[in-house]
């Protein structure tokens, strides 16, 4: 049985906000199936008593003083924006008309 189905890939693509053609979905599903088969090996040694490591060098509570420092101007912050309106990012409609 395949580790991952075409429908699951379509669902993941929706969650990831990536449009995919039927051909892309077919190709991706077969490739991911092979890759997942290979990476599933981690389960062979991942025993219950082994703690997980999220970072190579464990650091905790990295704080700095809450002091304002020079930063980007509004113009600089907006300099790479696809669209702007005044000192703001201009974006397509986010909510539906009925919401």
């Amino acid at each position: 049985m395949a580790a991952i189905s075409r429908d699951e890939v379509a669902h993941l693509a929706r969650l990831s906000r990536i449009e995919m053609s039927d051909a892309e979905l077919d190709h991706m599903a077969s490739e991911l199936d092979v890759i997942l088969g290979a990476v599933a090996r981690v389960q062979e040694v991942a025993a219950n008593d082994i703690p997980p490591t999220s970072h190579a060098i464990a650091l905790h509570n990295v704080f700095r003083a809450d002091v304002v420092k020079p930063s980007l101007t509004p113009e600089e912050s907006l300099s790479g924006a696809p669209a702007t309106e005044g000192p703001r990012f201009k974006v397509p409609q986010i909510l539906g008309e009925t919401e």
């Binding site: 599933a40 981690v42 389960q43 040694v45 991942a46 082994i50 997980p52 490591t53 999220s54 190579a56």
Partner: peptide
């Protein structure tokens, strides 16, 4: 099964 196990492997 996947991410959690991978993090344990990282410990090993």
């Amino acid at each position: 099964a996947y991410y959690g196990s991978a993090q344990k492997v990282r410990t090993l």
